[in-house]
Amino acid sequence: MKTRSSDDPLLPSWVLRAVIVGALAVLAGAATPPGAALAGGAQSFLSYYAGVFTLLALTAAVVFGLLATDRLILGIRQRVVAQAAHRAASVLAFTFVVAHLLVKVLGGLAAPAQIVVPAVGPVGLGTLAFDLLLVVLATGALRARFARRARPWVWRTLHSLAYVSWPLGIAHGLTAGRAAAPWVTLSYVLCLGAVALAVLTRSIAGVRPRQVRRAGEDVAAPAPLRTRGTAPAARAAGARGEAVR
């Protein structure tokens, strides 16, 4: 079974080289007339769609992140997949929000200060959402550190800023720029409602404190089922789990 260990490097080494080569090729190509035309096309496309993609990815990230915490409906495997989808969507959201900001600033439609400094107005909503998103992404990236320091509640509190950032982002998307079609507005409102419902469910169902299991304990639980052993065997399995850990 090939699963990536967390000790393995995140990317194979050739990927970095390929990216560098690609970047050089792009830098050279963009200086040529057809490359400039392509870059212009990419810019107008991103200027139009990067914000939309950000909102879509952010919505997916919130929904999958919420799904990954669900213990009522989903099994463990679905939750693992949901977590992977959550991570992928978060990466995409960050990519597209950076593209969105860059394109808008380069296009002269926003001042550079507006990226960080919120102001009153539709653009300011987006700025606020982006600031919060930065916090959320930072906590997401440093999740392991928070977990090891045994302060999961800090992490959970900070990470749940996403529930503020995401609606702000949607409000920004619906108020700034071009007017949204009714079905777009309706979909976002439905999404917001569904997520609100899920959060409510989670907060109610999650009152019972979670048992934080360590590695060995996790294997201990299903042990009696698999081996169909006797009670002492199960108990010993638990003890062995401790030893292995």
């Binding site: 690609g22 970047a23 963009a30 400039a36």
Partner: peptide, 22 residues
């Protein structure tokens, strides 16, 4: 990479030949 190209174009500025420049 697309952003790289866009940033480069906008830094180069000047009379580009694209139909829809930055």
């Amino acid at each position: 990479l697309a952003m790289l190209a866009i940033v480069e174009r906008s830094l180069l500025g000047g009379p580009a030949t694209g139909p829809n420049r930055q």
